[in-house]
Amino acid sequence: METMTIQWSLVLFTALTGIGGWTFVCVAADEFLGRAKTAAFPAAVVAFALSAVGGLASVTHLSHPDRIMGALGHPTSGIFTEAVLVGCVCVFVAIYLVMLKRGASDGARKAVAVIGAVFGVLISFMAGESYLMSSRPNWDTQLLPLGYMLTAMPGGIACYLAVAAAKAKEAKLDQYAKALLVAGVLGVLGTVAFAVAAGQSDGSALGFAAASAVLTGVAPAIVGALLPKKPQQAMTLTVAALACAAVGIVCYRCLMWVVSEPVSNLFLNML
């Protein structure tokens, strides 16, 4: 079977923007929950940095990065959609940060945070949606972008929890721990669903699928279950969950590349 070379710039782009987007989702959620108010600013800064660096990583995939404006001149392209979404996330996170510093009203701040969070969720899904194409039947399923989103969730929540544990000593993180537990379960389901749909079972594919399921799913879920019982170890546990989730997110995106087989090969295999 002929597989594609892993495109690391795209792996990093989708991994970083996914984690950044879901980190800001947690920031927006806490605008309503008020569990870790002092974590809002540093967590939003982290979300902005991850999204911006991820966006820059995508540009390095182009053979001529200087022609990025030409690539953005086609509104129907995946590159255009991704660039717009990343830009919207960064803009609304930046506005939110300014509003925090200037003491804007709660209502205005919440509205901006929710809009930014919506874009954060969208980029985690649409980064995978861009790869749906009939010429790559292993990719041509909505389970692929769904897996992109579901594997990004534990990473973003763990990232927020790590910042909250470091910057908001008074934070009450039980609800976010439950969210991490649920996100971990969804991460496992997202990985397994796409791996089964892709229909490949060679060693490398199985290895990436297993690593993704364990690291983006099982490990964060365990941390989510332990955190309410061991609040004094919140920093250690959340950093461990973030590290595992980050590696697992990369593994899921690598899985996509190693299971890819072009239509021409499938046709030849049937002869």
Results as ranks from 00 to 15, higher is better:
Phe13Cys: 00
His61Thr: 01
Gly34Cys: 00
Thr81Pro: 04
Val214Arg: 01
Gly73Cys: 06
Ser204Met: 06
Ser204Trp: 03
Pro137Ser: 06
Leu181Lys: 11
Arg35Gln: 10
Ser63Asn: 09
Val247Leu: 12
Pro137Asp: 13
Gly54Trp: 00
Ile68Asn: 07
Tyr252Glu: 15
Ile222Glu: 07
Gly207Asn: 13
Phe194Ile: 07
Ala193Tyr: 06
Leu144Arg: 09
Ser77Asn: 06
Gly73Trp: 14
Ser201Lys: 13
Phe24Glu: 07
Leu255Glu: 10
Ser124Arg: 03
Pro262Met: 15
Ala166Gly: 05
Val247Thr: 14
Gly120Ser: 02
Phe208Lys: 05
Ala43Trp: 02
Ser63Asp: 14
Val121Thr: 06
Gly155Tyr: 07
Pro228Ala: 02
Ala28Glu: 05
Phe92Cys: 01
Leu143Phe: 08
Val258Gly: 10
Gln200His: 10
Ala193Asp: 06
Pro137Met: 09
Ala209Met: 14
Ala57Ser: 15
Pro137Arg: 02
Ala113Gly: 02
Ile68Leu: 14
Pro137Cys: 11
Val46Pro: 03
Val114Arg: 04
Thr5Val: 06
Val258Met: 11
Lys230Ile: 04
Leu181Pro: 01
Ala111Asn: 05
Leu189Thr: 12
Tyr96Ala: 00
Ala171Leu: 04
Thr5Gly: 01
Ala243Ser: 03
Trp139Pro: 14
Asp140His: 14
Val112Glu: 02
Leu255Thr: 09
Gly207Trp: 05
Glu82Met: 10
Leu132Arg: 14
Ile249Asp: 10
Ser260Leu: 08
